[in-house]
């Protein structure tokens, strides 16, 4: 690297600040909805993948059922608005709380499994929950739920129809929260326990790490952050149904973002979102349509290539260059 000596720590501090400044100024420069939407999606998927990364990347439990928590967040806040006229901000907290409780119940059976078996069990959990919600008529069933529109825009109602700028900053806030929590866990005692479990569960247990308890902590934090994203999605799109917030494809997309960027690293999930979201929006705009699925064709091939050639993700790629 070019930066050497005393310049290095200065750059390490200045670059994130500059980036943050640029990100904050972005909606002032780009006033069209599409670029803002693109950034919002990057923040949202970045936040979701960062949340997933806490459980999967640090604690080593590859969950393919995170859409459950996303859906819980979306449904809790929406149902509370419709049934109790509660502000989505409170609904967001309620959604996170329910997701935490749900995660503990889910964790009880699935944490007995390892590796591929754990992944399959989390898929099964996701399918069960989705099937239950589809058949739950009070919660809209397969038809889904509309978030009642309230005008004018107000912060309490979490609805902003005039401009996407507010959504932009809320999504950015979610992302920063997820990154902050990850950063905090990374340096904490608990974060070391997580990584010990990931590397070797038996060895960690033999050294006194309470494996089951730590796994439950990891899934609780991960689920709460994912649920926040779910509420945000509901308030951004104003319509949710089991197909849009509970599908297996969402669970897989979340971890794909993290895998692409680099699992078990702080910045990996965000890097993955910054690459994959524009790519998938781009291929969909240019190649999608016509029912030919050419965009998905390329997407699938890309996943295979990454898995085979760069399993460490893009962050790992940067590390490779740095070493040489």
């Amino acid at each position: 690297m070019a930066a050497a000596g005393p310049l290095r720590p200065f750059l390490a501090r200045a670059v994130p600040l500059l980036l943050l400044g640029a990100v904050a100024a972005f909606p002032l420069v780009f006033t069209k909805p599409f670029p803002r939407h693109l950034m919002i999606m990057i923040f949202l998927y970045g936040a979701l993948a960062t949340a997933w990364n806490i459980l999967a990347g640090y604690c080593g439990q590859i969950s393919l059922g995170h859409a459950v928590f996303f859906g819980i967040g979306a449904y809790t806040s929406t149902l509370l608005i419709r049934e109790a006229a509660l502000s989505p901000w409170l609904g967001m907290l309620a959604g996170a709380a329910i997701a935490v409780v749900g995660s503990q119940l889910i964790g009880y059976p699935v944490f007995r499994l390892r590796g591929h078996y754990f992944a399959i069990a989390t898929i099964a959990v996701g399918e069960i929950i989705q099937a239950l919600v589809i058949n739950w008529d009070w919660a809209g069933g397969a038809r889904g739920l509309f978030v009642p529109i309230k005008r004018p825009d107000s912060f309490v109602n979490f609805q902003f129809h005039e401009s996407k700028a507010v959504y932009y900053f809320i999504a950015l806030g979610l992302l920063l929260l997820a990154l902050g929590v990850t950063r905090w866990i990374e340096g904490s005692r608990r974060g070391y326990f997580f990584r010990a479990i990931r590397e070797d569960q038996e060895a960690a247990a033999s050294l006194g790490v309470h494996v089951a308890r730590e796994k439950h902590w990891a899934i609780a934090v991960s689920a709460a952050l994912t649920a926040l994203g779910g509420t945000f999605y509901a308030q951004y799109v104003f319509f949710i149904d089991p197909e849009s917030v509970f599908p297996l494809s969402l669970s897989i997309l979340i971890c794909l973002v993290a895998v692409l960027g680099g699992v078990g690293t702080l910045w990996g999930p965000l890097v993955g979102a910054a690459v994959l979201v524009p790519l998938s929006e781009g291929t969909r705009v240019w190649l999608g349509g016509g029912g030919k699925a050419l965009d998905l064709l390329i997407y699938g091939a890309l996943i295979v290539l990454i898995a085979v050639f760069q399993p460490g993700g893009l962050v790992g790629l940067a590390g490779r260059f740095r070493r040489t």
Binding site: H116, K292, L294, L297, G300, I303, V304, A307
Partner: peptide, 27 residues
């Protein structure tokens, strides 16, 4: 190529293949 690699690479190699084959059939 992924047999000796991390488990995530194994999952995503076959998962990517699934997406690829499915959209190839659709295409």
């Amino acid at each position: 190529w992924v047999l000796g690699g991390p488990m995530l690479a194994q999952i995503f190699a076959t998962f990517g293949l699934a997406v690829f084959l499915r959209s190839a059939a659709q295409f």
